[in-house]
Deep mutational scan, measured.
Amino acid sequence: KSIMKVYCQICRKGDNEELLLLCDGCDKGCHTYCHRPKITTIPDGDWFCPACIAKA
């Protein structure tokens, strides 16, 4: 079994998992407080990182 360690693409830390959003496009993580602008609430439904939005 392989366990994927998810970490924030900005701060490179994997702590505060409850505030770590996973992109529905690329599965990369980003803390709500590292994202600019900050994300104050966990979004309902799908969330896409800035890189995936730029590709769309």
Rank of each mutant, 00 (worst) to 15 (best):
R36H: 13
I10P: 02
S2L: 09
A56H: 02
W47K: 07
A56C: 04
A51M: 13
A56T: 06
A54K: 11
T32I: 13
T40E: 11
Y7V: 06
A51N: 10
D24E: 15
C11A: 00
D24P: 10
D46V: 11
P37M: 04
W47P: 06
C30Q: 13
C26Y: 01
A54W: 04
R12S: 14
D27L: 08
R12D: 12
Q9M: 08
T41Q: 12
K5Q: 07
C11M: 00
D15L: 02
F48E: 11
P43L: 06
T41P: 15
I3K: 15
S2K: 08
A51W: 05
L22W: 08
E18Y: 05
C49S: 00
A54F: 08
V6F: 14
K5L: 05
G14Y: 15
H31Y: 01
K5W: 03
R36I: 05
L19T: 08
T32F: 04
Y33W: 05
T32Y: 12
M4A: 03
P50K: 02
L22T: 12
I53T: 04
K28S: 08
D24A: 14
G25M: 09
P50R: 15
C30L: 10
E17A: 15
M4F: 04
C30F: 13
T32H: 07
A51Y: 02
G29K: 10
T32A: 10
K5V: 05
T40F: 12
Q9N: 11
C49E: 02
L20P: 02
W47V: 03
I10V: 10
F48V: 14
C26T: 01
S2C: 05
G29P: 03
R12G: 10
I39G: 08
K1R: 02
D46Y: 02
E18T: 12
T40L: 10
T41V: 10
C26E: 01
F48L: 10
C30E: 14
C34A: 01
P37F: 03
T41F: 08
R36A: 12
L21Y: 02
C8A: 00
D44E: 04
L19F: 03
C11W: 00
L20M: 12
C34M: 01
T41G: 13
Y33G: 11
H31I: 01
D46A: 06
I3N: 15
P37H: 05
D44Y: 04
G25N: 06
G45Q: 15
C30M: 15
V6C: 04
D44V: 08
K1M: 06
C52P: 00
G14A: 13
G25H: 07
L21E: 03
C26I: 01
I3L: 05
N16L: 07
L21F: 03
E17L: 12
H35A: 13
A56N: 06
E18S: 13
D27P: 05
Y33D: 07
C8Y: 00
Y7P: 05
I3G: 07
L22D: 04
L19C: 09
K28R: 08
W47G: 03
K38G: 05
C52I: 00
A54E: 15
I10S: 10
C49D: 04
E17S: 12
K38D: 10
G14C: 05
A54H: 06
T32Q: 07
H35D: 13
K38N: 06
K38S: 10
G29E: 09
M4N: 05
K5G: 09
C11T: 00
A56D: 12
K55S: 15
K13G: 11
D15Q: 04
I10E: 15
C30S: 12
A54C: 08
A56W: 03
R36C: 13
P50Q: 00
I10K: 07
K1H: 02
P37T: 06
R36M: 14
Y7H: 11
C34Y: 01
G14W: 08
K28G: 12
A51F: 02
P43V: 07
L19I: 07
